[in-house]
Structures are given as C-alpha cells and as structure tokens.
Design a protein around this nucleic acid. Structure first.
Lengths: 240, 240, 240, 240
DNA sequence: GATGAATGAGAGTTCATTCAT
DNA sequence: GATGAATGAACTCTCATTCAT
C-alpha cells in the first residue's frame, strides 16, 4: 500500500467516525439518549448498524465519544487560549463565560441538552462513581476556572476570602441554568448580552470592592437613587 | 355501604397510591427512569403490575404524579410560608435557599436526582413544549422567588437595576449546581453551611451595597425607609 | 374467583408450559440448541415470544426445564419402580438398560440427541462446574444403578471386586454409545434385542464366575501369580 | 523465485495453518464452538480475520480441519502401529484403549471436549447425514478395532458369537464415558490405571472362556501364555 | 497473500401496556 | 378494584462472511 493510499484510508475512517458522532449528537440532543436507537443513528449517519458498533463498541461508548470530542475538541482548547490571551480577571471570567455558553449553545443547543441528557444516563449506568470517564472530562475542564480564580485572588482582583468550590458552583450553575432558561424563551438570540446581565451581579459579589470607592461618591449615588424613586412615587400620586 | 366503610375504603386507596408513589420515587431516583421497570415498582410497592396502571394510567403519569406531589406538597407550601413569616430580604433569600436545597436533598437526595432524571425524560416524551405539566409546576414554584425579589427591590434592599430573570438563574442555578457538587463529595453533611457560603457572594452581588457604611449612609437609609413608606401609600392609593 | 375457575386457570397454565416444553424439546433435538431461536420455539408452541420468557426466564432455563421434566418425570420414576419390582440382579440390570435406552429413544430419539446437545451447551454456559443443575439431575438418576450394583454384590451375584464408578461407565457408556450407533443405522427398530446383545458380554464380565470354583482353578490362579512375578522380574532386568 | 524461497514460503503457509488450527482447537475445546468467534480465533492465532477464511473457507471447515488433523495425524497412525506391533488380542485391546483414551485426554482433554462439542455442531449443520465428513473420519478410525476383533475371533481369543458392532459400542462407549467421568473428578491423573479397571470386566465378557472348559485345558492355556511371555522377556534381555 | 473495515441479518431479552378473570 | 398472564414491538449487540485495498 502506498503512503498516499494509507493516508486516504485514514481520512476515510476519521470521516466516518465524525459522521457517526455528528448523527448521534444531533439525535441524542434532539430526542434523548433512550429514545434514540442505534438503528436510527446508523441510518442518519448513512452506515450500517454493525459499523456503529465497529467504531464505538457500544451505545455508551458512543455517548462518551461525543462528550470527549466536545470537551477536548472545543471546550478545553478555547478555555486555555482565553487564559493565555486575556489577563485581567474580569475579562477572563467574561471571556470564559461567553465561551462556555456559546459552546453549549452552538449547533442549536445540542450540547447543552446533551449534557442534561447525559446526567441521567450516567446515573443509570455508572451510579455516580468517581471513576466515570465523564467526571474526568469535566474535572479537567473546570480546572481552567480554578486557575483564573486563583490568579485573580493573587492579583487582588477578587476577595481573598473566596473559596474555589463555591465559585465554580456560582459560575457554572448560573451560566448553565441561565442558558437553559434563556434559550427556552429566545433561542440563541441576545445570548451574549444575557451573559453580561448574569455576570454583572456575579462580579459584584466576587470582586474586591475595597478597591477604589470613596464615601462621598457612594453617598451621592445613593441619594440620586432615592430622588429617582421619590419622583416616581410622586408621578404615581399625580396620576390618580 | 356505611359512611365509615366508605371512609376506610378511601383511606385504603390513598394509602396504596402513596405506596406506589413512594416506591417509584425511590427507584427512579436511585436507578433512573428507564432503568426502573413498572414491574419493579409494583413489586417494591407490594401491588400487582396492573394496579400501578389502575392508579396512574402510564409510567409517565406516574412520574408526573411524583413531581406534582413534590411541588405541591413540599416546595410550594414551605416557600409561601417563608414569604409570609420572614420579612427582610436577605432572610427571605436565605430561608428559601435553605428550604430549596434541603428539600431537594431530603431522602438521600432522591428528589434532586429525580429532577435531573426528569429533564431527560421530558425531553424524550414532550420535546420542550411550553405546555408540559412539569413546566407548569416549575413556573408556579419559581414565582415565589420572583415575589421576594420584587419586594426586595421595592424596599431598596436589592439594587433596582436587577431584573427578575437573571436573578432566578443566579439563584437556582447556583444552588442546584452547588447542591450537586456538594452532595457528590460530602452527601448532606454540612449542607446548610455550604448554602451560606454560596449565598454570601451572591448577596454581595445583589444587595444595594450603598447602605450603611458611614453616618451619612445611615441617614440615607432613614431616607430610604421614608421613601418606602411613601411608595406603599402611593400603591395603596393606586389600588383603591 | 370460584374454586373451579382457579383450577381451570391452573390447568391452562400447565398446558401452556407443557406446550412450550414440547415445542422446544422437538426443535432442540432436531436442529440443535443454537440453531433453534426462541422465536421459532414460540411459533411452534403457538404463543408469543414474550410468553416463552414469561414462563422460563431465559433460553437456558428452558433447556433445564426440559431436562428436569425428563429426569424427574420419566427416568427416575421408572428406575425406582424397576428396583422395587424386580429382585434378581441380572433382571434388574436388564430392565434398567431397556428402560434407559427406550426412554432416550422415545419420541424419535429426541431425548438422546438432546442430551448430546446439552453437553455442548453446558460447556459454553457453565464451564463444567459441579453445581450445574444438570449434574445434579444426573447424579440423582445414576444413584439407581449404584443401588442395584451394591445389592448385587451383597447377594453374591456380582464380583465383589467391582467398584461402582467403572461400572457406571461400562453400563451407561455402552448403552448410550450403542443406542447412538444403532439408531443411526436402524432407528428404534430392534432396539430391545440390541440391548440384549450389548448386555450379554457385559454381564459375563460382571457376574461372579467363581460361584462354582474347583480346586483345579485355585491351582491355576497360583500359577498365574507365579507367572506375574516372573514377568515383573524380566521387566526389571529390561529396565536396568 | 528460487527453489529455496518457494520452500520457505510453503513452510510459512503451513506454519500459519498450524497456528490457526492450534488456536481454534484450544478455544473450541475450552469455550465451545458457538462461544468462540472467528475474531477470537484470528486474534489468538495472531492473524487477521480475513486470513482465517483464506485458509479454511468457513468456520465449519475449520472445525473439520481440526478433526481431520486429529484423526489422521494422531489417532489412526498410532492405532495402525499398535496392530502391527502387538499380536495377542488382549494386549491389542489394551494398547488401543490406552491410546484412545490418552489421545483424547492429551492437551488438557481438549480433544475429548472437542468431540463432544462437535456432536452438537454437526447436528445443527448437517443433520445426521451419512455423508458427513466427520462420519467418514470416524468410520475409518473405528475400522482398526474391527480388525483387532475379527482377528481375535479367528484366533479363538474372543467368543465367536460376538458381533463387531456391539463390540464397538462396548469398547468406545465405555472408554469415552469413563474418560469423561474420570477426568471430571481427577483430571488426567491415574488415567491409565483406570483404563485397566474398565478393561478388566470388559475382557471377562469378551474372551472365549470355553477355551478351558476343562481344568486341564485351562491349565494348558495359561501355561502357554506364561511361556509366551517368558519368551518375550528373554528376547528383550537378548536385545540389550 | 494478507488485511480489517464494513456489512446486515438475526439473536436473546425487556417492557409498558392490556384485559379476561 | 385488583390481578398477573399474555403480548409483540423494539431494543442493543454479535457474528460469520465479503471484498477493496
């Protein structure tokens, strides 16, 4: 076999594998894991049923193949890039949030649903064993946020009382829940702006607020707000 | 049939229904929806397979029955009670958070897993239609947080720039994600304390931080209270 | 439910079970275990596939059900009866041999083939574990021959040098091998006569021919012993 | 291509064929025919799946290849040798029995199990057609016993009332059944001694006991045998 | 000659659901 | 009202075999 032929052959294999993964991703995300038969996947990928098992061994490994591709092909590379490029803490959190949300939302939110789907599957298949391959993938990815937070505290951007675990929960919990509800109502439209909206109060809760404010400035701000409300009340009374 | 007999009979029915719900709840949460056959549920509840269908019509309706009992029997009553009893905003958020988390964590985290489980199921059965009975249950429950937030803003406890939707995401997203990771590592132990840890940065991000640092701020607060009273009066006039 | 109805119901169940066993017996014996699908069995028995599994749980248990019915329903009862009725040793062996062979040969030799079939199946499924249910069935049945032999020796009908294990091998090995070859050539025709042909030399080898020894024979024995000793000496020299 | 190269090439082919046969023999005997996939055989033999089919065409032909090698490579040559070397009937039967049993028992009883396995397979594949290649192999081998018996009768060593077919059944049936039970309990240990134990009563049933109706005749006979044996010993001593 | 990717028919088994009793 | 036997469609997965390379 010539060198060329071998390369062409390997490309064909990878193309098939990709095709099966694509089909399975779409179907799992659309209809759920259990409602998607291997037959349907094979048909959607344009291969025979046997081929699916030739490539992935079992339906579960196929699911893991999808997750693996997503974490190691999309999430991790971009997260690492963000940390290498952006330096200020707020910018990092923002970039990671946008990246996280938009990755999950890509392809019509396939992956987001897929992750939800997988939680249930994992429960049935693996209990919640710490050795689950999915846990490993996730642990790896979450490490990027940890680094951003650690360095943010070192630089004095974040309160030094923050612990890393609650922060993970605050960050990913908010983003994923928020993504879910936002997409439920508006799809991917305005998603980036919504991430900002979510990040604002979060940032307020995280940043080291001792930096910079003077009492006078604070006071002014507050008084202005009170005025505003009083004016509104006055208007209301006027209307009646 | 005497009145007594009729009552006894009705009690028996309700007891059976409860038994089936209990068995199904435990099994679904432990092993997942698909991995739990109706046969197992019947066996665990000590009834025949046919009886399960007599009471619930289908496996899906059984699942909905579980969720309904949980929302309307546990979540909603307690949430309403919190709002009626506790008045200050931070206390309300705290009480609701603790309530939410501990309800989900009760019975060895059965319900938490169950909700996860259900997301996948719903996807398979109903797509993501807005008419899903589960959505209705959830919408209803989430309303309690909305009220707490709305009133918190009115009182000036929360920034008036906050919108209700992102807040829901921040609140429930953080709590559920946090509950998941906490229980994964430590079970229910130290859960309440962990809720505090999660709530602290959240609160910092939500509360109207201009309150209170200096004498001037105290003065501001007094002004705000006056403002609030005026607002309420205005509303009263408005309603009448 | 009336008493009558219950009985009728139980009869129906047993009839179905019998029907499935019959169909499976015929198919397994005709085509082999692996070449017979559960689908075919269900069709032959006139029930649905699910029903087969309702009654027997798995294909293997179905096989065991067949063997159990054969051993406990046919072989054992008749063997016990023989031992209770016939008293002289030769008659017993003869009756048991005829019974064994004709039971195996009944139904167009279904059972004989079935046993052959099963040996292979058992190998694949159970290794050759001593706990195999099939071993238990067989051990039980073989006990009848053991008894006949033991009592035969006690009465002086059989040589008292005979051990029970080699005897089992001689008896059943000859009969089954013989049955196989006979049926291969002639079917069941002349089977009983053939059993006699097999039994004759066997009996000669088993019976206590010393009944009736003379002094001359004793002398011969002594000569043989001497001979043996000489031979051994020769061998020793040979080896050195 | 040079002569040498051609030879080397042919050797490689035969080596491969042998490798596949060895692997398949071990796997079939260990796990059974159906439980052994061609994939496993290929892996065990260190070749690709396609190669197995290049050499043997199908799984069944592979099985036949194994049996053929066993009969024509092991059983037949030795049986022929026995008949050419040993002359007295009892010695011949004994040598053949030991040979038969120990061949079957070699390699951890692989072949014995294999034959059991094959019976089931044959049933499924070929029905019981007389043309089966396996029958032919077996018929051929059994011929050796037939010859020993025929000549034994001619010499007056065996009763002239014996027919050849029942004798085959007695001989092979007892040996194979006995081998099975012996190995089940004790493996190959003490196998030769056990063959003697089986052969003793068999011989008693087969030999012409009329030789020696009178004591004098018996005595003569025995003495002749002793002479014969002594002569053999003498020859042996001579050779050294 | 050797490979191993691809096939697709068919296997055993499960399961929610029905309905006669 | 309660039962549980009966169903049959659908499932995941295996496998001997083929054939382009």
């Amino acid at each position: 076999m010539t060198e060329n032929a071998r390369r062409r052959s390997r490309e064909r294999l990878e193309e098939r594998e990709r095709g099966i993964l694509d089909a399975a991703t779409k179907l799992f995300a659309t209809a759920g894991f259990h409602a998607t038969s291997t037959r349907k996947i094979a048909a959607a990928a344009g291969v025979s049923e046997g081929t699916v098992f030739h490539y992935f061994g079992s339906k579960n490994e196929l699911m893991l193949g999808i997750l693996d591709r997503f974490y190691n092909g999309v999430l991790n590379p971009k997260a690492a890039e963000v940390l290498d490029t952006v330096m200020d803490t707020r910018g990092r959190l923002h970039a990671m949030a946008v990246h996280h949300v938009s990755s999950l939302a890509a392809d019509n939110a396939l992956m987001m649903r897929l992750l939800q789907v997988y939680v249930g599957v994992e429960l049935e298949l693996l209990g919640q064993s710490a050795n689950s391959p999915f846990r490993a993938l996730n642990r790896n990815y979450v490490g990027h946020l940890d680094r951003a937070v650690r360095e943010g505290i070192e630089r004095g951007d974040l309160r030094n009382t923050l612990e890393v675990r609650p922060l993970r929960d605050l960050f990913f919990g908010t983003l994923e829940y928020g993504l879910r509800t936002h997409m439920y109502h508006h799809g991917t439209e305005g998603l980036d702006a919504y991430v900002d909206t979510l990040l604002d109060p979060m940032w307020e809760g995280l940043r080291d607020s001792h930096k910079g404010d003077t009492d006078a400035e604070l006071l002014t701000e507050r008084l202005e707000e009170v005025c505003l409300r009083l004016e509104r009340s006055a208007e209301k009374l006027d209307r009646d």
